[in-house]
Design a binder for these strands. Structure first.
Length: 425
RNA sequence: GGAGAGAUGGCUGAGUGGCCGAAAGCGAUCGCCUGCUAAGCGAUUGUACGCCGAAAAAAGGUGUACCGCGGGUUCGAAUCCCGCUCUCUCCGCCA
C-alpha cells in the first residue's frame, strides 16, 4: 500500500509510474473521496469534542443535584448526528480502502521501462552450458524413465499439476531442501523458521495477495484460512503489527515450506513436468531492513540465491524485471533463471524482490530509530532460495548422462547418503 | 466435543458508569548527586488520524480515537448488555 499522504501530494507522479506498469487507476476518484473523508472527519471530531465537554458539565451539575435536562436532550441530538456521520465515514473509508489496497507499488528508479518480459535486461550470466554428445531430454522423460517421478499416479490420487516423487527422486527433493537450508543458515547467516502452511486473511492482505489476487489462492472450506502460495506470507507476517528495535535490524529468515497455487489463468502452460504445479516446495529467504539498506540487501539476497546454483554448478542468468513484468507489491525484482538443456531455455528458479515499505505499511511492521525516537516502516524483501522442484528439474536436465542416469552434484552428495549418481534402471 | 477462567500501556498489575489515556511497581531514556560502580533524587516514557503551523518538511500546538475484536445501551463506557476471536485449566478424543 502506498502512503496516502504521498499519494495525495504526488498524484501526477504516481499516475505516471502506474502507467509504466501498464496499470490504470482512478486517482481522481480517490482524491475526491479522500477530501470528503477529511471534511466529514473534521465535522464529526468537532461534534465529539463538544459532546465530551458538555457531558462533563452534566456530570458536574448532577453532582450538585442540579437539573441537566437541557444539556442531555441537546447532546442526544448531537449523538444521533455523530452516529450518522460515522456511518458515512465508514463507507468512505471502505471505498478508499478498496482503491488504495489494489494500487500496486511504484517501481524503483533503476527499473527499466518495458512492456513485457522480453524487455527484462540481463544483468549477468554465470556458467557454461554443458555440451552433450546426445540429445538432452526434458526432465519429465528422465524422471519417468528412472522411475523417480510419477505424474500419472499423482493425477489419479489428486489431479493435474501434481507429482509423486519416488525413491531417489524423493531423496533428491529432500536433499535439495536440506542443502539450501544449511547453506543459508550456516554460511549466509539466516535464521531458520518453520511456520504454519495456512494463514488467515489478514496475513494475505499484509503481503499483498489479498484482496486483489484471491483467485490465485486455495481457501479452506468453511474457514477463513488460506494455503500459503509462498513462505513469504507467514514469514513476513511474523512481525505484523510490531514495532521492532533498530538494533534488531536487519532480520534475515530462511524458511522451507510447500507452496500452493491455483494457477488460474495458466491453463495449457507448462502442462508437462514439474515446472508449474499446484503444490511445490520452496526455500524462501525473507529480510526486514532499515530503509537506507534495503537495496544493498537486495543485491546480497540475490547473490545468496545465485550461490545455490553456483554450488550445484548449474548455469544461470539473472534478469532485472522491467516495469511491465514487476509483481504487484515489488519495487524492484531480480529473477534468477537456470539453464535447462532439455528445453533449451532459461527458466525462473528464484525471484528476489525489494518491496520497500509497501508490505510494511499494509502489515504495519515498523521500527523505532534510536537517533530520533520516531517509528518508521521497515523495508521488506524476499527471494526464493530456491524453488525446490525447479532445482530438481535443473539437476535432472543439466546432469543427465548418455545412458539415462543422472549425476548428483558434488555439493548434494552428503545429503544423498553419498551416492554420486542415479543409475538407469 | 464438554466444563470453567481470563484478555488493560514495553512488562507486572489496579481500576464495576463521569475526577481514566488510564494508579502503583518494574524496565527504559535524560538530568542531578557521587573518585568509579552501586544506591539515591528528579523529569520523561504509547500509537494512529484530523486541523493549525511552514516554500516543503520538521519542531511545536490542538482535537479525536484506541483498555482483545465487532455491535448495543447511555448526555457520557476500560467499566453495563449481546456476538465473535484468542489464551489458559480440567475432562474426552487424537498424531
Amino acid at each position: 500500500m502506498l502512503d496516502i499522504k504521498f499519494l495525495r501530494q504526488n498524484l501526477d507522479l504516481v499516475g505516471r509510474k502506474l502507467k509504466e506498469r501498464g496499470q490504470e487507476v482512478d486517482l481522481d476518484r480517490f482524491i475526491r473521496l479522500d477530501a470528503q473523508r477529511r471534511n466529514i472527519l473534521a465535522e464529526v471530531e468537532t461534534l465529539r469534542s463538544e459532546r465530551n465537554a458538555v457531558s462533563k458539565q452534566v456530570g458536574e451539575r448532577k453532582k450538585r443535584k442540579e437539573s441537566a435536562d437541557d444539556l442531555i436532550s441537546r447532546m442526544a441530538e448531537v449523538s444521533t448526528r455523530i452516529k450518522e456521520l460515522d456511518e458515512i465515514l465508514k463507507s468512505r473509508d471502505e471505498e478508499l480502502g478498496q482503491i488504495v489496497m489494489v494500487i500496486p507499488n511504484i517501481p524503483h528508479e533503476s527499473v527499466a521501462f518495458g512492456t513485457s518480459s522480453e524487455d527484462n535486461p540481463v544483468v549477468r550470466t554465470w556458467g557454461e552450458p554443458r555440451r552433450y554428445d546426445f540429445n538432452p531430454r526434458p526432465h519429465w522423460e528422465i524422471g519417468e524413465t528412472l522411475g523417480i517421478l510419477d505424474f500419472a499416479r499423482a493425477a489419479k490420487i489428486t489431479g493435474a499439476r501434481f507429482a509423486v516423487y519416488r525413491g531417489a527422486g524423493a531423496l533428491l527433493e529432500r536433499a535439495v531442501i536440506n542443502f539450501m537450508l544449511d547453506l543459508h543458515t550456516v554460511e549466509h547467516g539466516y535464521t531458520e523458521v518453520l511456520t504454519p502452511f495456512m494463514v488467515n486473511g489478514e496475513s494475505m492482505t499484509g503481503t499483498g495477495q489479498l484482496p486483489k489476487f484471491a483467485q490465485d489462492l486455495f481457501k479452506i472450506e468453511g474457514m477463513e484460512y488460506y494455503l500459503i502460495p509462498t513462505a513469504e506470507v507467514p514469514v513476513t507476517n511474523l512481525h505484523r503489527e510490531e514495532i521492532l528495535g533498530e538494533r534488531d535490524l536487519p532480520i534475515h529468515y530462511v524458511a522451507y515450506s510447500p507452496c500452493f497455487r491455483s494457477e488460474a489463468g495458466s491453463y495449457g502452460k507448462d502442462t508437462r513436468g514439474l515446472i508449474r504445479q499446484h503444490q511445490f516446495n520452496k526455500v524462501e529467504m525473507v529480510k526486514f531492513t532499515k530503509p537506507e539498506n534495503s537495496y544493498e540487501e537486495l543485491e546480497k539476497l540475490t547473490a545468496d540465491a545465485e550461490a545455490v546454483l553456483r554450488r550445484l554448478d548449474i548455469p544461470f542468468r539473472t534478469v532485472s524485471l522491467c516495469t511491465a513484468d514487476l509483481g504487484f507489491s515489488a519495487a524492484k525484482t531480480y529473477d534468477v533463471e537456470a539453464w535447462l538443456p532439455g528445453q533449451e531455455t532459461f527458466r525462473e528458479i528464484s525471484s528476489c524482490s525489494n518491496f520497500e515499505d509497501f508490505q510494511a505499511r499494509r502489515a504495519s511492521i515498523r521500527f523505532r530509530r534510536e537517533e530520533t525516537g520516531k517509528v518508521e516502516f521497515v523495508h521488506t524483501l524476499n527471494g526464493s532460495g530456491l524453488a525446490v522442484g525447479r532445482t530438481v528439474v535443473a539437476i535432472l536436465e543439466n546432469c543427465q548422462q548418455r545412458d539415462g542416469g543422472v549425476a548428483i552434484p558434488e555439493a548434494l552428495r552428503p545429503y544423498m547418503r553419498g551416492i554420486d549418481r542415479i543409475p538407469p534402471p
